[in-house]
Design a protein around this nucleic acid. Sequence first.
DNA 1: ATGTCAGAATGGTTCTGA
Length: 272
Amino acid sequence: MAARLWRAPLFAMKIATWNVNSIKVRRDNVVRWLREAEPDVACLQELKCTDEAFPHVAFEDLGYNVAVHGQKTYNGVAILSKFPMEDVRPGLPGDAEDDQARYLEAVISRDGGVVRVASIYLPNGNPADSPKYDYKLDWMARLKAHAEQLLSYEEPLVLAGDYNVIPAEEDVHDPDAWRDDALFLPETRGAFRAILNLGFTDAWRASSDEPHRYTFWDYQGGAWQKNHGIRIDHLLLSPQAADRLMACNIDKAPRSWQKPSDHVPIWAELAF
DNA sequence: ATGTCAGAATGGTTCTGA
């Protein structure tokens, strides 16, 4: 009889990401979803507000610790965590001139389990013939370099956020309509694969063979009603996190609520 | 008219970014 190697998990850590498109407008929707989904960790993007203006109390009242890397008008990322956060680091290394608030990282510590989590708002990059696309590709190269550094720690790591990357044809309702878009160009998808190929697992793709499941539907043209969506919000798992992956899902209901974000939450559960 | 939304500067409308 072989030795019994398996043991029952002690607990699960549910880690989510959601581009909220203004935390001031979306506060009550986010509170509602946190009550329903009860994630242990929630990474938020596109806060569109400063650290001071962030509605800390609404989330602290639900039992979350709050880390914010805000910015006036644009961008802004946060991490909400039921457990204490250490080593909180705002900003993506690699360019001292870059003042856009698009990256925040923290170590979540719980008895018997530690996971490093990043909240990522990767540049959109449109139009693709403009300097905005160069900035997107530069940012992706910096993310790759930093991710390589983080992988060397050999710990559970989740890079969660709005990547503004459609990985494959099956992740968009009409590939031809997006062919020349900065979210779907071959160079964009190649840069995304270069990050994955460092050793990351796309949590959604590891959990489901189902094509045409989306995390974003444009406000324009009735995209939600017609299910003309794209999958651009991703959870990338280090090997030590991927080994613990129990479940991953997209919560599309919030897109049908009043005053919705154009994105919906996606989450993964890791067993410890 | 991208059949839209959010923020900001403005002066009640127009611009930017997505």
